[in-house]
Design a protein around this nucleic acid. Structure first.
Length: 523
DNA sequence: ATTAGGG
DNA sequence: CCCTAAT
């Protein structure tokens, strides 16, 4: 095509802007310069035909390095869906459907007989010294959550497609991992290109873009956004206070259910808790051991652990469906309903502080925080001490029962008290860094939402902003000398990959951005 | 909601 | 991590 030739010529002839989105002022300037050039336009081609052509070309450009330039980065990647092969589960049974009249708990689900043993007996708590953990860690694989396929996840068009094929298999699929987006998300890339702010600054493009805008908006509305910032002052809406859906199903507070709905009684016959570790002095009493275990279990249950609901072997993904809609109420067969515990992907272990550890260090929050030690060697004496005196490792968080302040009431204290607590610091573990690097290698540095979805979907406390920030510091860390680095050391291999990926993507991002501006010049 | 960047 | 501007 003539046009493409011309474009290519243009690419070689002009200087690539160093920073895609550097200073806002610069961007403004750029947009002004485009306005100037508007009059030079004499291209007859329909704007959208041109865009389609160009988008296709850009797409090709973006994919090419996948196969050629970046063979060096190819590695193998596993996508495991463990939703159905998770070994930790509740055995449960629907006993009966009971009228709402009996004065049960508000959740509508009655849980009983926790102590009974069943085929899947509770896993015994493993107690070991903290030094052992590092050794064990090498062999202990933490199960990850089952997740929808990544490719689908990336494409908003198929985001809502209900998948059946992964429900009953726990086999791992192998994907090639390379730099650059896979071609299947191509049309999303094109959409992104078209929706880019660069285009919006292009006067010629603008009208067409506006026409398409409602379309994009609709697409967005179909997506379910992964997380909402917790609002602090929601006095008016007590039903919102339950952050992570600790009530299963419709609440009986809802008047509609009070009158019409039947309750479902469940008996959970046994449950298993994922493996966790406890550190406790040899001199501790049995009762304090009990207490510690209880603390750990409580923390695990209310912390970063997901509960999955399975019905007849299939995972129910839609949290908003009622029990009635899902058919939970109808199937009275034993084992029809199951609950899975899904530990956080990166949650290598739980460690609970020994009794006597001061809890005053904890910022209150309305969620239970799990004490989590990193495997970084403790270099100072501010480690956990038996006296519980001065020091708790700075990485250790003390569990605060959520219930002790009336279910999050503490956070929503006063309308005037601006108690938007700074979130607790949670250093990235090496495995998290690894996941981040992998995701950025593939997706680039400008798609943090996708990175989040891809690699941190089940890490509720990691927002895409966090990931972006972490990448920023990683790049910085990689550039400074190892002596200047602090915290848990990141393997040099990872840091190298950070720099490589960062270089790769900043180049390609700049290149693509430049193409857009050039194309706009021609319009 | 997301992205980018400064604090 | 937080905050904000701009999308």
């Amino acid at each position: 095509m003539v046009l493409q030739k011309r474009l290519e010529y243009g690419f070689n002839g002009y200087k690539v802007p160093p920073t895609p989105r550097a200073p806002r002022s610069a961007r403004k300037r750029a947009s002004k310069s485009w306005k100037k050039n508007e009059d030079h336009n004499n291209n007859r081609m329909c704007a959208f035909d041109l865009l389609a052509t160009v988008a296709g070309e850009l797409l090709h450009e973006g994919d090419k390095p996948n196969q050629e330039e970046n063979k060096a980065f190819k590695t193998e990647e596993k996508d495991c869906d463990q939703g159905s092969c998770n070994k930790s589960f509740f055995l449960s049974e629907i006993i009966s459907k009971a009228p709402v009249s009996d004065s049960g708990p508000t959740s509508g689900i009655t849980v009983s007989d926790f102590s009974q043993k069943a085929p899947s007996a509770p896993k015994s708590v493993e107690i070991c010294k903290i030094e052992d953990i590092n050794n064990k860690e090498m062999t202990n694989e933490v199960p990850t959550n089952g997740k929808p396929p990544l490719v689908n996840n990336l494409d908003s068009n198929v985001n809502l497609v209900i998948r059946d094929d992964d429900e009953n298999s726990c086999g791992c699929t192998q994907n090639n991992k390379t730099f650059g987006p896979p071609s299947r998300i191509g049309d999303r890339r094109i959409r992104r290109l078209l929706a880019s702010k660069q285009w919006k600054n292009c006067p010629k493009f603008n009208d067409d873009y506006r026409n398409k805008k409602s379309f994009y908006k609709h697409q967005r509305s179909l997506r379910d956004y992964p997380f909402k910032k917790r609002k602090l002052y929601q006095f008016d809406n007590p039903s919102n206070s339950n952050e992570d859906g600790s009530s299963l199903g419709p609440t009986s507070q809802d008047p509609a259910f009070q009158t019409q709905d039947s309750h479902v009684k469940l008996k959970i016959k046994s449950f298993r808790v994922p493996e966790f570790f406890i550190e406790i002095p040899e001199t501790a009493t049995v009762s304090s051991l009990k207490r510690t275990v209880m603390e750990a279990v409580t923390a695990i249950f209310s912390g970063e652990l997901h509960v999955g609901v399975m019905l007849r072997g299939k995972r129910i993904r839609d949290d908003d469906k009622t029990l009635l809609q899902t058919g939970i109420c109808h199937d009275n067969k034993l084992d029809a309903l199951g609950f899975t515990l899904e530990p956080n992907k990166f949650q290598d272990r739980y460690v609970v502080s020994p009794p006597g550890t001061p809890k005053s260090l904890t910022r209150y929050s309305n969620e239970v925080v799990v004490i989590q030690h990193d495997d970084a060697p403790v270099t100072n004496s501010r480690n956990i001490t038996e006296t519980g005196g001065v020091g708790v490792d700075s990485r250790a968080l003390v569990a605060v029962p959520a219930s002790n302040s009336g279910g999050g009431l503490a956070v929503r204290k006063s309308k005037h008290a601006e108690v938007a607590q700074r979130r607790i610091r949670r250093p990235f573990s090496v495995s998290e860094v690894e996941a981040l690097v992998e995701a950025v290698e593939k997706l680039g540095t400008g798609r943090w939402r996708d990175v989040k979805l891809r690699a941190f979907d089940d890490a509720k406390h990691r927002t895409y902003v966090d990931l972006k920030d972490k990448w920023k510091t990683l790049v910085h860390t990689a550039r400074i000398s190892p002596q200047q680095r602090r915290g848990e050391p990141v393997p040099q291999e990872l840091l190298d990959r950070v720099l490589t990926a960062h270089g790769y993507w900043s180049y390609h991002q700049a290149k693509n951005q430049f193409k857009q501006t050039e194309i706009c010049r021609l319009l």
